[in-house]
């Protein structure tokens, strides 16, 4: 593509200090470092949707929180529209915040139960100081209509507890749209919702992206949902991106053993069950030390001596086919 990417994330890293249990403590050292996000890099084009999938605790939500400024990474760089965001230029950061909005996982937690929908939806505009009180109703109505809450004037003065989970998530989306962002981050927006309403939220997000020419980072644990929503898919495991590429390639020809297992479970669970020894080592592998080998090696069916590597244990991402990168010693 001729244009520079909308967003470039390079070598972003975040460690959390975790308090150790009494039995695990050494003298003077009550904490251990846990890599939440480890050396994550990717680029996002304008109008593109990138899916990030992975299990809980793999760092996908932390990545989202870093991108919206809720978590400060230890190192790395985030370049949005040509400007570095992690530098300390406050005006750049403020401008960035208006351009990037997030829809959180839990629609019950992330909307203030004491506020009317009208105020919730207009809050981004109030905070950023560009709305007159008398315009509120009109703007809120337009946004409510936009996210499919019809007729909007019936919803304006309601409170969130009068809404169903799906409706709340629509309100959250309306709020995220209020500032007309260029990048929308959706952090598992449907995982708390009932199966029958999920499709509605997914379709809404798809049409909004097209209509507003937004980019989206869609975070989920379900590879099928990612396939439905995204142009490209990144698979995260233990804080790292282990595979990233075009949707069809990742789904149809997954390269990393972990991705292969994910695809098989989703595509044909029966097949996975009957020959799971081809996909993942059985039993529970929990005792693994960090460093010294590929992060997936303890559960990996094709590990061997090559999986041991020198530094922190990260296999480098290798381009196996155009724009399809895999971090596995066996995939090149």
């Amino acid at each position: 593509m001729a244009d520079a990417p909308l967003l470039t994330v390079a070598k972003v890293r975040k460690t959390f200090r975790q308090k150790l249990r009494w039995s695990e403590r050494k003298l003077g050292d009550d904490y251990k470092n846990v890599f939440a996000v480890d050396d994550v890099s990717f680029a996002l084009e304008r109008g593109e949707t990138l899916g990030i999938i992975g299990e809980s605790g793999c760092g996908k939500s932390t990545t989202a929180r870093i991108l919206v400024g809720l978590v400060r990474p230890d190192s790395g760089s985030i370049i949005f529209q040509g400007k570095e965001i992690l530098g300390n230029r406050a005006s750049d950061v403020a401008a960035y915040r208006k351009e990037v909005q997030i829809v959180f996982q839990d629609p019950y937690e992330y909307l203030n139960p004491r506020m009317r929908l009208k105020d919730i939806i207009c809050e981004p505009l109030v905070i950023n100081g560009n709305i007159q009180d008398n315009r509120k109703t009109a703007i809120a109505e337009e946004l409510l209509d936009h996210v499919g809450l019809n007729p909007p004037n019936e919803y304006l003065n309601r409170f969130t507890h009068e809404l169903s989970g799906g409706q709340r998530q629509r309100v959250a989306i309306a709020r995220a749209l209020a500032l007309r962002p260029k990048l929308l981050i959706a952090d598992e927006p449907t995982s708390m919702l009932d199966v029958s309403v999920r499709a509605g939220i997914l379709n809404l997000l798809r049409s909004l992206i097209l209509e507003h020419r937004m980019s989206m980072i869609f975070i989920t644990h379900d590879i099928a949902t990612a396939g439905y929503m995204c142009d490209r898919i990144a698979v995260m495991y233990k804080g790292r991106i282990i595979e990233i590429g075009k949707r069809d390639e990742v789904i149809n020809t997954p390269q990393h053993p972990y991705t292969k297992a994910l695809v098989q479970v989703c595509d044909n669970l029966q097949g996975f069950i009957s020959e799971r020894e081809h996909y993942i080592l059985d039993g529970e592998v929990d005792s693994f030390e960090q460093g010294g080998h590929c992060c997936f090696a303890p559960g990996c069916v094709c590990r061997d001596g090559e999986c041991h590597c020198q530094d922190q244990g990260s296999q480098e991402l290798i381009e196996v086919s155009p724009e399809h990168f895999v971090a596995c010693a066996h995939c090149h």
């Binding site: 909005q101 937690e109 203030n112 004491r114 959250a172």
Partner: peptide, 26 residues
Amino acid sequence: NKGYVEAVEVLGAKPFYTIVKHILPP
């Protein structure tokens, strides 16, 4: 630690606004 306070921080709210609007009422 409630989500909605976090959500407001994402919108770029200043601490004073967050306190008066979202923390004081409850």
